[in-house]
Nucleic acid binder design. Structure first.
Length: 278
DNA sequence: AGTCTAGCCTGGGAGC
DNA sequence: TGCTCCCAGGCTAGAC
């Protein structure tokens, strides 16, 4: 499940492989994933364009072309790879950008959840999905005080609030569980009950966990691989996610798995008591 | 206006 | 073995 560290790793590996290449043709096998414009207009627009740069905003990949910008979201299972045209195609390949040098950028996605939007260059930040995003975790706007103020003003549980990309962008289900474990905060605490000191812990661990995960090329839980086909290694450092039934690394208490708004949630009830600390 | 829920998807695993 | 059910989960549209 690509969250910020995985998307950033894809951005970096893909930049080395695809920047500077010119699109000669595009095949769209699953038109529904092209959200804007219609698939044939999409094809017509990108043919002849060269990939100038690949950027990231939150969990979105942003391909800067000559006249257009392609905004891609991998959702759960989306993967990009650059292959020789002669190489056999992996199953579930839904979009293929053929380059003029006989290589091609392939997008595959078992679940078909991923999306692509193509807009005129420079207008990408008017897309509702990008426009709504809050600060990047490494942006100077993201501070303990900012987080405290945002959490104070919502009636939601703290985990749900942290997954809201409007408050801070880039956290997903895996890293939010890890951040809350390290902060010793129960995910079901009311966001409005979080103190400034606790917001400081969440702020600190959001940055440190994501930074370390980027260094390690992300976490490979199920199927994630980067654009060079390699797995990440941060899963070795996960303390709670995917460890239900196992002993807490800090206190030995059994990690439990519960639900938060329909999402799996991993907690050490000893390290993360539900009661607000005095 | 803020919050919640269903829907989008398919493969893999559990249970029968 | 083969069937059904459930789960994984980011984001959006629509309901409340």
């Amino acid at each position: 499940m690509p969250e910020l560290p995985e998307v950033e790793t894809v951005r970096r590996t893909l930049s080395d492989l695809a920047v500077g290449k010119t699109i000669a043709n595009v095949q769209v096998r699953w038109p529904k994933m092209i959200k804007q414009p219609e698939a044939d207009q999409f094809r017509e627009a990108v043919v002849g364009e060269t990939i100038q740069a690949i950027e990231r905003r939150g969990k979105f990949l942003i391909f800067q072309l000559d006249h257009y910008t392609l905004v891609s979201h991998l959702r759960m299972e989306g993967k990009f790879s650059v292959n020789e045209q002669s190489e056999a195609e992996a199953p579930h390949t839904h979009v293929v950008f053929e380059f003029t040098d006989k290589t091609e950028l392939r997008y595959r996605d078992v679940r078909k959840f991923g999306t692509m939007h193509l807009v005129k260059k420079g207008t990408e930040h008017d897309l509702p999905s990008l426009k709504a995003l809050g600060p990047e975790p490494f942006d100077s706007l993201f501070t303990a005080e900012y987080l405290y103020e945002k959490l104070k003003r919502t009636s939601r549980q703290v985990k749900t609030a942290l997954l809201d990309q409007i408050i801070v962008t880039g956290l997903g289900n895996i890293y939010v569980d890890e951040v809350l474990f390290r902060s010793k905060i129960h995910p079901h605490r009311l966001a409005s009950s979080i103190t400034l000191k606790e917001a400081g812990l969440i702020h600190f661990y959001t940055k440190s966990v994501l930074e370390e995960a980027v260094k390690r090329g992300g976490s490979t839980i199920r199927t994630y691989i980067n654009s060079q086909g390699k797995k990440g290694t941060f899963q070795e450092l996960l303390n709670v996610y995917g460890r239900a039934g196992k002993a807490c690394v800090d206190c030995g208490t059994e990690i439990i798995k519960t639900k938060t708004g329909g999402r799996g949630t991993h907690i050490c009830l000893n390290c993360q008591p539900i009661e607000k600390p005095l």
